[in-house]
Amino acid sequence: MSTEIAIETRNLCKTFGRRASKRIEAVKHLNLEVRAGQVYGFLGPNGAGKSTTIRMMLDLIHSTAGDVYLYGRHVHRHHEILRRVGTLVEGATFYNFLSGRRNLEVLARTANCYDPRRIEQLLEQVGLAERANQRVKRYSTGMKQRLGLAAALLSDPDLLILDEPTNGLDPGGMHEIRTFIRRLVDEQGKTVFLSSHLLGEVEQVCDRVAIINLGEIVREGAVDELLAGKSTLRVEARPLQRAAEVLRQYWPIVTNETWLTVSASHEDSPHVVRRLVEAGVDVYQVAAQRQTLEEYFLAVVRENGSHA
């Protein structure tokens, strides 16, 4: 991994609304450092401030306080640094009355990087070559998303900021995009800043993640480090409701219709069983399993006072 810092935010804040009663602090003193040459996941529940942060990184929204630097240059004062960035922000939207190819031409010309061969190559790469002359109005959400990815890559950027890039894609398409993102980083040395709700996807593709909640970063680190030693216990017991009540007093839990996932280590297993038996609950199975990023995320978000 490179030592160059692709994205840096310093004390970044954004407040919406002028009147005190309607004021919303969407992002609070956010400090983030994303090194080049990795896939960096940006996670958070709805309304956590992910999109606002991304928009500030792209100079779409002006920060109330603090700064964003891309490759060491202030994004607002040195707008030209955004030439090194490709973006896909909150769902791909285009000029519906133009064809896919024309949309890419418009965006490439706007960025002063128009190259018809590059457009053809990208259309081929995202699987839209055959329908490139069709108006975008007739594209499915998945097709628009693929076109969005092609648009993000038009200028062959060093940094890709992708907000929910697999929205609207079928499982096959999602897998393709994941592989594509990984290849961009591993083979071409690009940096990808990825915001996604699909935590399984993030776990598979990201090197590091930051979890944002209520406008603040609550966890940050390499995926392996965050999940190291974070095992869970899967508990099957009857009555399940009573089991949940008992265990909730001691460990964070996630309930399911048929079992409970308890954020506890393998060493806690006897204690879990003892508590349940003492409370008159029948225990059928207690199995240790490695905690997934999704479980980790839910636990962190709950701990920090919001429901995901």
């Binding site: 928009r55 792209l58 100079d59 779409l60 955004l82 960035v85 973006t87 922000v89 909150e90 939207t93 285009f94 000029y95 519906n96 965006l107 706007t110 960025a111 648009a151």
Partner: peptide, 10 residues
């Protein structure tokens, strides 16, 4: 059409 977000960073 929410196209400013594509255009403005460019």
């Amino acid at each position: 059409w929410q196209t400013w977000k594509n255009v403005v960073p460019r």
